[in-house]
Design a protein around this nucleic acid. Structure first.
Length: 820
RNA sequence: GCGGUCGUGGCGGAAUAGGCAGACGCGCUGCUUUGAGGGGGCAGUCCUCGUUCGGGGGUAUGAGUUCAAGUCUCAUCGACCGCACCA
């Protein structure tokens, strides 16, 4: 018997699979389509275990679907623009392109060494001109649809990366990439108007029945829709009107102060008029200087200063003090907030701290609240209105609505929907990205580069310096240009696009990767889309997954495709952990995939990673566990070699022995379970454990003869089921016993007759405790079981002298006898 | 603070529609095979009392629903994740 030699086998079969047409997929196919997709990687240099896990899961899905009769699209590519390439250029003087392509070559070789079933002819690399040409084209499409605009704003700036960041890329006030603190900077920047789709992005989450609730909740929170009322208050001394936004219009009669953000435009006017301007200015400067972290932390002390000016509550004519505070967020709502201490805990604390008036406007039904006895605001959305003019006595819901109606009727208020979601800041002051295809003409202003002139190529003659602004501005030949409209003097935009734009449409490009007339043809994208199964890490729950949904909706509205959501089903895999922490260089707990594949082979690496944990959960790396997986493959190899003679023998007329019949039953039960686990639940760990049980059962025949027909059936179906998980060893053993290619065979179906047993073990319980097990004919009726139970000797012994109150029988499962 | 997920052997985990808790694997123990480079096969392995048979207990804790609860309900404790002064 030859030894299992994974290195030799894997090389041999990878050579077969690397033939140009082996995995080529076309639309011209009568089978139903299935689009399996893993999030494409950033070409950092080497695959890590997270990649291995991601691709192993995707490969099982793709290979299984292909065997199960689908026309499967399973592509791979690289998210190839981004900072690390540029940092390599700064640190080592390597050209970002050279660095990137070398990494892509290396990682592609590693992916091929994993035996993944990709259609490489569809590979997409976002840093290539034939791809970013269409990224630029799509920018122009957004621009023409009024969804791309430039504006000056206080934006998030990361010093270390030397660029701005989108809100989604700021995590706890820190840069998502380098973890350094982000601060605000006023810059003129390009934005995508994602807020125009806020409502649909929120509403369509309901359509995503194949997404984890967790991800949908995160997106829901991020979009942060709220309904409320915008109220305008007169400030006669200032000759101004101030708008505030509230989600609690029912408390409007309780306004006792008005809080302005330090950035609010009215602050300048107040400073100009106030006798205590110096004092106010000191406060405003201090508040503005605070970092985002300090300002958005709910633990920060709420501070404010009275301006000396008043406005008027339009509901009851009350005089309301105008304060400048450090806790109102300028970017949300109107940047000004009405203060109702009785109904909002922050306002309550603020009022207590500065001794402001408190007016009660709502109290629970049947209870009378007394301000002097309260030590917190009453914040429930229920109760009865008090001190609210003609609305007093109404219950919460009626009062809420009536007050909004009143405000709208009187013209000082308007119902309004607000979102936490802000527009997507897409400019980056970096080199290694798709240039924004805009030209600024001295005469015509902002002009799009004409479509036929795309792509705007990245120039070579740039200087890289740490923290320098927009490297593209150092290229003379890039910056200077003529206006496409008037031919006059002009210069190019020197910012590039956020790489998340590149990755917002790559899965569409896979459907038509060579198209040089359009980003993709409508019929092709419609044929393959939506992605049937998308697989990746939870870290993209908001960023990439929200942006991609936005892109899909915009392109649908532009008539380029005909569906609403890009990813029908989403699987978020867990992390790979070792010694209780995520693998990382700094912790020194990294296990390199190359090392494992070199030692045990790709099949073992794949098998371990799929077996060790359910796909959604974090996976604890275990060197011993890897050995266990290797052991299992050796066991498969050995038992099929032991069966080899039988497998190759002709059929005999002999009927199966009882033991053989039982083994065949195990086989068909396994087929049923593995099929359901893989198809319906992505429960690869339990599918593999079922295969292990089957192989264990086969080992009972290692020393005795086995019926050739059965041996053949076992070998066949076992290899077919193993094929998606461990493609190399399956292909090799298949070629030793059977014709054709295991990966082009149909997935096995179970024989319903073989699964049926004549007898089944029934558990007999007395008062819920197992007291006996009996074998009865399968399907024995409830009535028969109930009649049978009291006659059992063991039951009679244990129930002697007691009264049987009730007998519950569940056919094929159990009997429970209740006694007193 | 708000929202979510989850607590099962020494470890990773299983129990899919409320019906035998601990499948499968790791580790460990014993037996076996001249296998002798991290080899293979078989058996045992939740705790506890009892010689085998068997009895009792057991899924974070406490209550509840039910003939029956790891699974459902409520409370408590703990872990992790997301959002977080959004008015």
């Amino acid at each position: 018997m030859e030894k299992y030699n994974p290195q030799a086998i894997e090389k041999k079969w990878q050579a077969v699979w690397n033939a140009p047409d082996y995995y080529r997929t076309t639309e011209d196919d009568s089978r139903p389509k299935y689009y399996a997709l893993e999030m494409f990687p950033y070409p950092s240099g080497n695959l890590h275990m997270g990649h291995v896990r991601n691709y192993s899961i995707g490969d099982v899905v793709a290979r299984y679907r292909s065997m199960a009769g689908y026309n499967v699209l399973h592509p791979m590519g690289f998210d190839a623009f981004g900072m690390p390439a540029e940092n390599a250029a700064i640190a080592h003087g390597v050209k970002p392109g050279n660095w990137t392509f070398a990494n892509i070559r290396n990682m592609t070789a590693q992916q091929k060494a994993m035996g993944l079933a990709y259609d490489w002819s569809r590979e997409v690399e976002t840093c290539r001109a034939d791809y970013y040409r269409w990224t630029q084209w799509l920018f122009e499409l957004f621009y023409k649809r009024g969804l791309a605009y430039k504006k000056e704003a206080a934006v998030n700036w990361c010093d270390k990366c030397g660029t701005v960041l989108a809100n989604e890329q700021v995590i706890d006030g820190k840069c998502w990439r380098c973890d350094s603190e982000v601060h605000k900077k006023n810059l003129a920047q390009w934005f995508f108007k994602i807020t125009a789709y806020a409502d649909e992005l929120l509403a369509d989450l309901d359509k995503l029945t194949g997404w984890p609730a967790r991800v949908k909740t995160m997106q829901e929170n991020w979009i942060g829709r709220s309904e409320g009322l915008e109220i305008t208050l007169d400030a006669p001394e200032l000759g101004e009107k101030i708008s505030v936004y509230t989600t609690r219009p029912d408390t409007s009669f309780g306004i006792t102060f008005l809080a302005l953000a330090p950035e609010h435009p009215l602050v300048e006017k107040i400073l100009a008029r106030s006798p205590k301007a110096d004092e106010l200015k000191k406060f405003v400067d201090k508040a503005r200087a605070h970092s985002d972290i300090e300002r958005t932390s709910s633990e920060s002390e709420k501070e404010g200063i009275f301006t000396g000016f008043y406005c008027v509550n339009p509901f009851n004519g009350n005089k309301v003090q105008i304060w400048i505070t450090n806790y109102v967020v300028f970017e949300y709502g109107t940047g000004a907030v009405m203060g109702v201490p009785s109904g909002d805990q922050r306002d309550w604390m603020f009022a207590k701290k500065y001794g402001l008036d408190i007016i009660l406007t709502l109290q629970p039904k049947g209870t009378e609240l007394k301000l002097e006895e309260m030590d917190a605001a009453y914040v429930e959305h229920a109760g009865v209105l008090v001190n609210s003019g003609k609305f007093t006595g109404m219950d919460f819901d009626a009062g809420f609505k009536a007050i909004m109606d009143e405000a709208e009727a009187q013209g000082f208020g308007k119902r309004k929907v607000n979102y936490r979601l802000r527009d997507w800041l897409i400019s980056r002051q970096r080199y290694w990205g798709a240039p924004i295809p805009v030209i600024y003409c001295d005469k015509c202003g902002e002009v799009l580069v004409p479509e036929e002139q795309l792509p705007v190529h990245l120039p070579d003659d740039v200087e890289f310096k740490q923290g320098a602004l927009s490297p593209l501005s150092t290229s003379k030949h890039f910056v200077e240009c003529t206006c496409p409209k008037c031919g006059g003097h002009a210069h190019r935009e020197t910012d590039t696009m956020d790489t998340f734009i590149c990755s917002s449409w790559y899965y569409m490009r896979y459907t038509d990767p060579k198209n040089d007339k359009l980003p993709f043809a409508r019929d092709k994208v419609n044929y393959w889309s939506p992605v049937d199964q998308y697989i990746g890490g939870i870290e993209h729950a908001i960023l990439h997954l929200l942006y991609s949904r936005f892109f899909t909706k915009v392109l649908r509205d532009a008539g380029m495709l005909d569906y609403d959501e890009p990813f029908a089903n989403l699987l978020t895999q867990g992390m790979v952990i070792k010694d209780g922490a995520k693998m990382s260089k700094s912790l020194g707990n990294v296990v390199s995939p190359e090392e494992i594949i070199g030692k045990y082979g790709a099949d073992t690496a794949r098998l371990f990673i799929l077996f060790a944990a359910p796909v959604e959960r974090d996976l604890d790396w275990s060197d011993e566990g890897v050995q266990g997986s290797f052991r299992f493959l050796n066991r498969v190899w050995r038992i099929l070699n032991i069966f080899a003679d039988a497998i190759k023998s002709p059929d005999t007329a002999q009927v199966l022995t009882a033991e053989e019949t039982a083994l065949r039953r195990t086989l068909h039960k396994t087929i049923k379970k593995v099929t359901e686990d893989v198809r319906d639940r992505f429960a690869f760990n339990t599918a593999i454990s079922a295969l292990m049980e089957l192989v264990n059962a086969m080992h009972a025949f290692q020393d005795k003869p086995i019926n050739p027909t059965l041996a053949r059936e076992l070998a066949r179906d076992l290899l077919l089921m193993l094929a998606p998980f461990v493609p190399h060893i399956s292909a090799e053993l298949w070629s030793q016993f059977f014709d054709g290619d295991v990966h082009k065979q149909a997935w096995p179906t179970f024989d319903a007759k073989a699964v049926v047993e004549d007898e089944v073990e029934i558990v007999v319980q007395i008062n819920g405790k197992v007291r006996d097990r009996i074998n009865v004919a399968v399907g024995l009726s409830k009535a028969d079981l109930e009649a049978l139970a009291p006659t059992l000797p063991k039951v009679q012994a244990l129930t002697a002298g007691k009264q049987i109150v009730k007998i519950i029988a569940v056919p094929n499962k159990l009997i429970n006898i209740v006694v007193k």
